[in-house]
Design a protein around this nucleic acid. Structure first.
Length: 429
RNA sequence: GGAACGGUGGCAGAGCGGACAAAUGCAGCCGCCUUGAAAGCGGCCGGCUCGAAAGGGCCCGGGGGUUCGAAUCCCUCCCGUUCCGCCA
């Protein structure tokens, strides 16, 4: 959520900033929010005045009764009773307007960082690094889609996954399953030096899914367990961000670095029929997420740190990759600034997004009510959150199968993964 | 799922219709003492919100109600602990 106070202090600044997202309807919503805020304050000021009077009268009743002046007490009671009705009505009105304002505010996206590149869509995302480890050319034996190679090697069984669950679910078998797990262990081990490993719930409450910005606007993208009022997480970002919801942490504890290996569940509501083959898009996949809770001052360096961490893992696998920055028109709702790491998959001839690293400023923390206290200072401040995928399994899995395919159809396992795969060097049929 | 007891400030914990933003202790901050520290002593010490300020309002798990007045009484939901049941 953006800060309502910003709407009052600098509405034009907010307008200009939001305009960079290239969604004209946002500016209309903004005007609605500003109007509601004015209205809400007017009503609650009036209600507060009446309440003050009621409080005063109530005190007078107490005093009068104690001094035995029944007549005065009754007069004050009568007056207070009348005011009470008015206060009640105004209170209800104020609540309504405030709820309405909150509903609108929850759907207004974050303001882009001034340095975030301007652009109307993903075609305008600038390249900031790479390609790295990109060969001059790819031999024909590497131009085979991973689902074909995987079928020959018997390491992917999408038919049975569909039978067991539904379409767009995948199942890895044998060395394919080991490879998926090895990738997670690699990512965890590479970040365990400073990130605390967490095994969070993968089903969360409505308020938890709201804190990260996934609700209310993107309810269709998440799996709901309506009977128990729970949601399946689309990413470990969701539970990790809310770990400190409603808490005030000490500045000395920041930055807090957390990581988690979880399954992620996505309905992929808008993508039916897209990427139905192989491992490019799936309703359930594994991912290692890294996340930081920080002060505003710490945030920029942490953003770089998270990008470096994600990049380092991809580089260690020897995959060709590049880094792009997400432009204002393509950024997610909660994002303040955002980078993607893409791996090249020669078989599909596509750049696959394998990691997304984002800085949310105080947008999520305000929703989650995560604050910190500066040493020796009064009051609290909203914290900053940042997170990124340390490694998302399916697309990296696919990229490995395509990039490291040998002429004989086998797949070479990257060195760094072998210790996690019982020393396996090559997947053969 | 059933029963009992609970949910109060950063933490612990009193209060159970009016003078309560809330005792007390711990932690924290400032000062005195001290070569320095500890102990001791004195003082300060919750959050949110409206307002230029003065000042006002809200917050004792959430919501609703009773009352002139609710942390305190009633209803309801949520969460926790213990016991029983069930279960990996």
């Amino acid at each position: 959520m953006i800060d309502v106070r910003l709407l009052r202090i600098d509405p034009d600044g907010v307008r200009v900033s939001l305009a960079r997202r290239y969604k004209p309807e946002l500016l209309e919503q903004l005007d609605v929010a500003i109007a509601l805020d004015v209205q809400a304050r007017q009503i609650s000021t009036r209600r507060d005045d009446i309440r003050a009077k009621v409080n005063e009268l109530s005190k007078a009743v107490g005093l009068a009764k104690r001094s035995g002046d029944e007549a005065a007490a009754e007069a004050a009671q009568a007056e207070s009773r009348e005011l009470g009705a008015e206060e009640h009505a105004l209170g209800a009105q104020a609540d309504d307007v405030q709820n309405e304002l909150r509903e609108v505010l929850l759907r207004i996206p974050n303001l882009p960082h001034p340095d975030a590149p301007d652009g109307g869509g993903d075609h305008e995302n600038p390249l900031v690094k790479g390609p790295i480890q990109m060969p001059e050319s790819f031999a024909d034996h590497r131009r085979v889609p991973h689902w074909e190679t995987a079928a020959e090697l018997g390491i992917l069984d999408s038919e049975r996954a569909t039978k067991i669950a539904a379409s767009m679910f995948t199942m890895q078998r044998g060395a394919g399953a080991s490879l998926a797990r090895a990738l997670c262990q690699l990512a965890l081990d590479r970040n365990a030096d400073v990130f605390e490993e967490v095994r969070p719930p993968t089903m969360v409450s409505t308020s938890t899914l709201t804190a990260t910005g996934h609700l209310p606007k993107f309810a269709d993208d998440a799996y709901a367990i309506e009977r128990d009022d729970l949601w399946m997480i689309p990413t470990a970002e969701v539970p990790l961000t809310s770990m400190y919801a409603g808490e005030v942490v000490d500045e000395s504890q920041l930055p807090l670095r957390l990581m988690a290996y979880t399954s992620c569940y996505r309905r992929e509501a808008g993508s039916a029929g897209r990427d139905t083959r192989g491992m490019l898009r799936s309703h359930e996949f594994d991912k290692v997420e890294i996340l930081a809770l920080a002060t505003p001052e710490q945030s920029p360096a942490l953003l770089t740190e998270l990008v470096d961490r994600a990049e380092g893992t991809i580089a260690s696998l020897g995959l060709p990759y590049r880094i792009i920055e997400i432009c204002t028109g393509d950024m997610g709702q909660s994002h303040h600034r955002s980078f993607d790491i893409e791996v090249y998959a020669p078989g599909c001839d596509a750049w696959l997004e394998v990691s997304s690293i984002s800085w949310f400023a105080d947008y999520q923390a305000r929703r989650a009510d995560i604050r910190f206290r500066r040493a020796g200072q009064k009051g609290t401040e909203i914290a900053h959150t940042l997170n990124g995928s340390a490694l998302a399994v399916p697309r990296v899995w696919a990229a490995i199968v395509e990039n490291f395919r040998e002429p004989d159809g086998s797949v070479i396992i990257p060195d760094v993964l072998r210790p996690y795969m019982r020393g396996l060097e090559r997947i053969t049929a």
